[in-house]
């Protein structure tokens, strides 16, 4: 199963372009915006962009869900080439598994980030990251 990346139709290019765009927006927000909340939001946008990129790798034109449902198998003998023939039309399941864990991790990190932001605000009474600089040099 040879996986091709760059001789895809226009639609698949759309996925890559949009995910890279979302990553850049997220980066912009995280690196340039001064308020902490915006940085955290930027980071979660970043995560979303990467997840989109991961998903789009497994994309197959008009591919079906990668489940050997009884309707699809219709009691065919489970030989090697049958499986191969059936899976031609299916979308690649592995990136989807990766994205699931990535989303959970992203969620965890954002939760910790927000709790830290709350505590920083309680101490510094400001959300501007430039003022939170006592640990320096």
């Amino acid at each position: 199963m040879e996986f091709k990346l760059f001789d895809l139709s226009i639609v698949e290019y759309a996925f890559f372009v949009t995910s890279v765009l979302i990553i850049l927006i997220g980066l912009y927000a995280a690196l340039v915006k001064k308020t902490l909340i915006k940085i955290v939001i930027g980071l979660s946008i970043l995560d979303a962009g990467i997840n989109l990129l991961l998903i789009s790798i497994g994309y197959l034109k008009a591919g079906t869900a990668p489940i050997f449902s009884p309707a699809l198998v219709k009691n065919m003998p489970l030989t090697l080439e049958n499986i191969k023939k059936l899976s031609e039309g299916m979308v690649d399941p592995v990136p989807q598994a990766l994205v699931l864990t990535a989303i959970v991790i992203g969620f965890g990190v954002t939760a910790v980030a927000l709790s830290l932001v709350i505590r920083l605000y309680r101490h510094h009474h400001t959300l501007n990251i430039d003022e939170i600089k006592n640990l320096k040099w």
Binding site: L27, L31, I129, D130, I132, L135, K136, W137
Partner: peptide, 17 residues
């Protein structure tokens, strides 16, 4: 050289990029 670590989280992120 000590001054390189300015203490601002964002500058560290910019260093990474």
């Amino acid at each position: 050289t000590r001054r390189i670590y300015t203490g601002n989280g964002q500058t560290y992120a910019i260093y990474v990029m």
